[in-house]
Amino acid sequence: MKGVYGPLEPGVEWSIGGCRINLEVDGETLKYLRSCVGSRLERVLKGVSKIIIHPAPPLYLPVPGLFSHVYIPISPPIYLNPGGSISVKVDVITDLAVSPGDGGQRYIDIFSVSTPKMAVYGGAADGILARYLYKYSGGDLPRLSIPIHLANEDDDAVTVSKVVLPITYLDIYYKPGENYSESNEVIVKVNSGVAEVSKGGYNGGLEPIPRETTESLTSRLGLDLAGVRKFLTVDDVFLMDRGL
């Protein structure tokens, strides 16, 4: 079965971008096997009759708990004259998660079809560690489309080559039967060389991905998502003050 999101019944093989999932009935349990280039995961599932494959929030890979921001490269960079604004869609490769089809918030597996990488926004000494999202380059890879509205409210022209934002500003929605997903809009307003990044709305009508609760993430991964909101964040606006 070609890799599309949605439920996967036992006995059907699923694959996408070098990753393959096998789900087989083994007595009263299900045997889950996922193999990608260089990684493999095997699980015995009890009390689960099917699984759901969907995009994962970019906060688990490569190491959960290390970062709480997302780094979206804009390539090629966008040059904005004073007073100019533009709405673009940045397509990136998303991580994938496997949830139990019978409910439950904890993922069975989280994996990536590419090497998950991180980047520092700002200096190595006091910068912000963020998950780097690769630009989607076509093919059948899992794609996440992020609508970004850029507005230059400065007196000078600016060139924007990246958008960094707290993970909590990015909600992901997916459509079962396809390998396409999209997020809410991200609003970036540049003023005095500093970008104010805020969370926009979502009107697309796709299904929200199953997510772990903030409390669960905090207790399980030590990821203080509530604290993320406060860091360089004023009134729910994240300040990109270390370069655009």
């Binding site: 190491v63 780094y71 090497t115 990488k117 991180m118 926004y121």
Partner: peptide, 11 residues
């Protein structure tokens, strides 16, 4: 280095 997840893209 590029295939190592712990090696940062930036710097």
């Amino acid at each position: 280095i590029n295939e190592e997840p712990l090696a940062l893209i930036e710097p």
